[in-house]
């Protein structure tokens, strides 16, 4: 290989090697704006990940059976799936999307957050597996006092 070619090639490789670190910062609100305004869970999933087939296994969502205060519902998401990202949706609020976690390389899915729900409903989590498959899990809970001010 000529020297000139080699230099341009190595420059390319260096850029490619540098990019993953930067690309790990994905703001899903910027890349998938329509998903955040979708009203149904199915629609939001479609806008987020495309028309995908969900495999219903491997994700555990933990919540109280009855949440006394809808403004402050603890939700845990755990999974052993090797995933790029995991998104959380619910069907009790005006819009469906709650949050999307970008799973860092080698990171495990073990998250706890507190969310708001206006009424009783079902929480759906969808994980984008590194194997190209999409996995889902659901959890239905009762909300005694709605927390979104209508």
């Amino acid at each position: 290989m000529e020297r000139r070619q080699f230099i341009s090639l190595s420059a390319l490789v260096t850029t490619a090697a540098m990019f993953p670190a930067q690309l790990s910062a994905v703001d899903f609100r910027e890349t998938k704006p329509t998903s955040w305004t979708a009203h149904s869970v199915d629609e939001a999933i479609k806008e987020m990940y495309g028309d995908v087939t969900l495999i219903n296994k491997g994700i555990t969502i933990g919540t109280p059976d009855i949440a006394s205060n809808g403004a402050n519902i603890p939700v845990s998401i755990t999974s052993d799936i090797s995933a790029k990202s995991i998104a959380l949706f619910q069907d009790a609020n005006p819009e469906a999307a709650v949050a999307v976690f970008t799973v860092p390389d080698g990171g495990s899915i073990d998250y706890n957050i507190k969310i708001k729900m206006g009424k009783s409903g079902t929480i759906t989590a969808v994980a984008e597996g590194t194997d190209g498959n999409f996995y889902s899990g659901t959890r239905t809970l009762e909300v005694a006092l709605g927390g979104c001010d209508g």
Binding site: S24, N72, A97, A99, F101, T102, P104, S108, I115, K116
Partner: peptide, 25 residues
């Protein structure tokens, strides 16, 4: 300089939201 947690979030997180997560390394 290594990202260990990242989330895009919506209006449906609680007021003063709490985030719990785990990582290695």
């Amino acid at each position: 300089e290594k990202t260990v947690f990242e989330a895009s979030t919506s209006q449906f997180l609680s007021k003063n939201p709490i985030f719990k997560f785990k990582f290695k390394g």
